[in-house]
């Protein structure tokens, strides 16, 4: 079968898999991961000494340690195949479908990396910005929300975009937990047409298009959020 025929026959299914699985998995997991990341970053920079906050800080540290320190594919396997093996009186304690397990794991994994990005960005905002805001009579949450986070968002945009682009590609690992996402579909075509080079190159091209789109989006956001910075100047 000719290369073009293979492309013609497999492209529609690949695009469907992209729209039904790859893109939603990425968007939902990134959104959830980002919310989690901000919460974890705020917990980790907290200066509070109350026992609850200290407990949360320990928990946040542990979470980041685990999810940054182990392979994503292994995390997916533990959540999807491993957790249902936890049994009480012969009944599984946790039963997750592949979709839920995927979103949960991708969100937690992204959240762990992004929380470090956001924490570092917050800490990169100079101390005098805090003091100027405190001097206006702001409380700590208000200083964070109005003054520090908007500036930290600009700083964290390039590294967060990296995480986003990584996540798009990492959703291909979901094929390992039975999700019929784009890469899984391309594997089926590779077996069907006996031409792995064409099938896998085609899916690689589609991932490349997605990443490129995100890179364009990143440049646009960087321009928008840097309106206040003179060209070539870092502050």
């Amino acid at each position: 079968m000719s290369t073009w025929t293979i492309i013609e026959k497999s492209l529609p299914s690949l695009l469907v898999a992209m729209l039904k699985y790859t893109i939603p998995l990425t968007l939902i997991s990134f959104a959830l991961g980002l919310i989690l990341a901000v919460l974890v970053a705020l917990i980790r920079i907290s200066e509070s000494h109350n026992p609850l906050m200290r407990g949360l800080k320990g928990l946040a540290w542990f979470y980041v340690w685990i999810f940054r320190g182990t392979p994503l594919l292994v995390q997916l396997f533990i959540v999807f195949f491993g957790l249902p093996a936890l049994k009480v009186n012969g009944h599984a304690l946790i039963e997750l479908n592949a979709w839920t397990a995927g979103i949960l794991t991708f969100s937690l994994n992204t959240g762990a990396y992004a929380s470090e990005t956001i924490r570092a960005s917050i800490q990169s905002i100079p101390q005098p910005q805090w003091e100027a805001a405190y001097a206006l009579g702001m409380t700590r949450p208000k200083v964070l929300w109005r003054i520090i986070l908007p500036q930290a968002a600009r700083v964290s945009l390039p590294p967060l975009s990296n995480s986003f682009i990584s996540l798009v590609k990492d959703t291909s690992l979901a094929s390992g937990i039975t999700i019929i996402e784009m890469f899984q579909v391309s594997q089926q075509f590779a077996a069907l047409y006996y031409n792995p080079l064409v099938s896998y190159s085609l899916v690689a091209f589609l991932y490349l298009m997605l990443s490129t789109l995100l890179t364009v989006l990143q440049s646009y956001l960087e321009r928008r959020t840097s309106r206040y910075v003179r060209v070539g100047q870092q502050f």
Binding site: P128, Q129, E131, A132, A133, A135, L136, G137, M138, K142, R146, I147, P150, Q151, R154, Y228, V229, F235
Partner: peptide, 25 residues
Amino acid sequence: IVFQSYNLFPHLTVLGNIIEGPVHV
């Protein structure tokens, strides 16, 4: 207080800097 190094909020316009405290505090 006015600081030696100004410490304006760089992400806000001049107007934004001046109304920040009155509006949000």
